[in-house]
Amino acid sequence: MPAKGLLLPAALALVIALPSPGEAAGDAEKGRQIAIDHCSRCHVVPDYNPYGGIESTPSFRLLARRDDYLERFLTFFERPPHPVVVRIPGVEPPTDDPAFVATFQIQPEQVDDLAAYAAKLHAEQ
């Protein structure tokens, strides 16, 4: 019985710890610059490369419209094809196979910056 009494407070603490939609811990301007420097070779970044990106790759604005945009941006490096291309210290690549394009490295806090940029885009819609 005591375990049941602890479940609700633990779940509540988890919900409180998660960022709210439209809220992210990083710096949106730094995130925009990271998007320009690294992500714009595949994605359209608003007010930077309106005719760029790869046709089959969603734009940052389109991704930011999704209900689960914040989770997607916070975990983008785990979502194909990113694990082959993005290197984050402390996160092992999923394969030893060579990448099909040049890889790049970002720091864990820069993931928060990208998420903050996505939150800014989300709030503008």
Rank of each mutant, 00 (worst) to 15 (best):
A3W: 07
K4A: 13
K4Q: 09
K4T: 00
G5V: 07
L6P: 02
L8C: 12
P9Y: 12
P9N: 09
P9H: 13
A10I: 04
A10T: 03
A11P: 05
L12E: 12
L12A: 13
L14Y: 03
V15N: 04
L18E: 13
S20A: 15
G22L: 02
G22A: 02
E23C: 15
E23H: 13
A25W: 11
G26A: 10
A28R: 05
E29F: 10
E29V: 11
E29Y: 04
E29C: 05
E29H: 10
K30Y: 07
G31Q: 02
Q33F: 07
Q33N: 14
I34K: 00
I34C: 01
I34S: 08
I36R: 15
I36H: 14
I36L: 11
D37P: 05
R41V: 05
C42G: 04
C42W: 01
C42A: 03
C42P: 04
C42Y: 09
H43I: 10
H43M: 08
H43T: 05
V45L: 10
V45D: 03
P46F: 13
D47V: 00
D47L: 13
Y48E: 03
N49A: 10
N49W: 08
P50V: 05
Y51E: 15
Y51M: 06
G52A: 05
G53A: 12
G53P: 09
I54V: 01
I54T: 05
I54D: 02
I54P: 02
S56A: 10
S56C: 11
T57S: 15
T57Q: 14
P58S: 11
S59W: 05
S59G: 15
F60C: 00
R61Y: 12
L63V: 08
A64V: 00
A64Q: 01
R66S: 07
D68L: 09
D68H: 15
D68K: 12
L70F: 07
L70D: 03
L70M: 00
L70A: 09
E71N: 09
E71T: 01
R72K: 14
L74K: 07
L74R: 12
T75L: 15
F76W: 14
F76K: 00
F77Y: 12
F77K: 06
E78M: 15
P80V: 02
P81T: 01
H82I: 04
H82V: 07
P83K: 06
P83H: 12
V84F: 13
V84N: 03
V84I: 00
V85A: 07
V86N: 03
I88Q: 06
I88L: 04
P89Y: 02
P89N: 07
G90K: 13
V91S: 09
E92G: 14
E92F: 14
E92K: 13
P93D: 04
P93L: 12
P93T: 10
P93I: 06
P94T: 10
D97S: 13
D97V: 08
P98K: 05
A99G: 02
F100T: 00
A102W: 10
F104D: 03
F104G: 01
Q105R: 14
I106W: 08
Q107W: 12
Q107P: 13
Q107C: 08
Q107R: 05
Q107M: 15
Q110M: 00
V111Q: 05
V111M: 06
D112M: 07
D113A: 02
L114M: 11
A115Q: 02
A115Y: 01
A116E: 03
A116G: 13
A116W: 00
A118H: 11
A119L: 00
A119F: 07
K120W: 08
